[in-house]
Amino acid sequence: MIEIKNASKSYDGTQVLRDIDLSVKEGEFVAIVGYSGSGKSTLINLISGLVRPDSGTVTMNGEPIVEPGPERGLVFQNYSLLPWLTVRENIDLAVDEVFRSWTKEEREAHVTRHIEMVKLGPAAHKLPKELSGGMRQRVSVARTLAMNPKVLLMDEPLSALDALTRATLQDEIADIWLQNKTTVIWITNDPDEAILVADRVIPLLPTAPATLGKSIAVELERPRDRRAVNHDERFKALRAELITTLLDSKASRTSKVSMKLTLPDILPENVEDVNAFGRWSRRAPKRRNENKKEEVEVSV
């Protein structure tokens, strides 16, 4: 459905992404994991059409993607809700825009259904500033889903939330996905999150420029219980594989120059016991033992 072939992208002469090959089937839930600053947003913007590749092609159902459209719904990390509109009005705005041909009642029912889906019924008339971060992100998800996109693109949707809310929302979004099975491309920097929500996890390796690593299929049954998975050998193996892949790739990028550094073998003075006079008197520093210095090799 979504197909990226050999795409690369540079900003101001520095290449951010190279040789990106990705194909996503209809109804698939794909997660892309990478370090912050490695080019994840750039990648998802290629798919959304906000950014054009320097070379290579990005297509959806065979047609090249040239600009953002309602068939590709985008959810951002920072919610991007209009602060002067209530939850319902925020969603109305999107729905009115996309489904102009519908009657008022149809649209209303549609909005209500999506508000219920993210469990925000009681808060429908509230302004974003009266909501917690997790609730705001729910609104954002509901708004995007209400536009009936063919693909849901999520750019670190939960990164700004605390661990507990993040876990709840992961489960909720995974449940919603089970109901309607839209295609999802989910960007995250958390390997655990990726394994818990997705069918397929692809690491974005932080080589400079970044490129996609080998994709890892997650064959855990849904719905996934984050506690039960803990005992699942497949989960443990996947987790270890993903994390080590990413950490190793980062480590191999940083050049290993060995430097000889001297660590003086001095001990701290007791600052409490000195007065102004103590500072003037120039006695020798306390040392740990006879040999004065210790040479250590450090890889940079």
Partner: peptide
Amino acid sequence: VYYTASKDERRQMVEYYLSVVGLA
């Protein structure tokens, strides 16, 4: 904390620790 040490030693100290954490 190391006011009795020489200037050189203090510099080495700082350089050592910053290098070890990968900020050489």
